[in-house]
């Protein structure tokens, strides 16, 4: 398998990051196409009226459906969701892109916004997975303030 070669996915060692590559895209096809359907106002209304019934119209895995119901963005991404598609769920819920992005960091909305205004999350200490492992998985920028 190509996955076994260390050079196949050099981005695998970037912490807190899932690259939407061919494997993720294949896994997430139906999840992402469900998201696309929310670009139509009628579908947004139908989804909000009965989320479970609407999701059952799609050939998604149970895990994917549950992640949508839970609005668990990190889980949706791990199951093949792409942020630009998942943003349609946020729009349906009336959330801004910043609220959506912030929700994946474990930070509060205010703390995330303050971090961005202060110049964003530094790349220092956030380039390699081993840098996070040394810090007990704690992204730099989260709890230092």
């Amino acid at each position: 398998m190509a996955d076994d070669k260390p050079s196949a996915k050099p981005y695998a060692d970037v912490p807190g990051t899932t690259i939407f590559d061919a494997d993720q895209s294949r896994m997430g096809y139906h999840l992402n196409q469900f998201c696309m359907s929310l670009m139509q106002a009628d579908n947004r209304k139908r989804f909000l009226a009965d989320e479970r019934a609407y999701l059952d119209e799609w050939d998604m895995t149970e895990d994917q459906k549950q992640a949508v119901l839970d609005r668990d963005m990190n889980r949706m991404i791990s199951l093949g969701g792409n942020i630009y598609f998942l943003a349609k769920i946020g729009a349906t819920d009336g959330k801004s892109f910043q609220q959506m992005a912030g929700s994946m960091t474990g930070m509060t909305e205010d703390a995330y916004r303050a971090m961005m205004v202060a110049g964003g999350r530094s790349p220092d200490g956030n380039r390699y997975r081993h840098e996070w492992e040394r810090r007990d998985h704690r992204p730099i920028g989260e709890a230092d303030q």
């Binding site: 990190n74 959506m100 110049g119």
Partner: peptide, 17 residues
């Protein structure tokens, strides 16, 4: 320019880059 919209590393900005 620099930005990351997803995952726990969202919010990355690299002024130097």
């Amino acid at each position: 320019m620099s930005h990351q919209l997803q995952g726990p590393r969202a919010g990355l900005i690299n002024r130097e880059f």
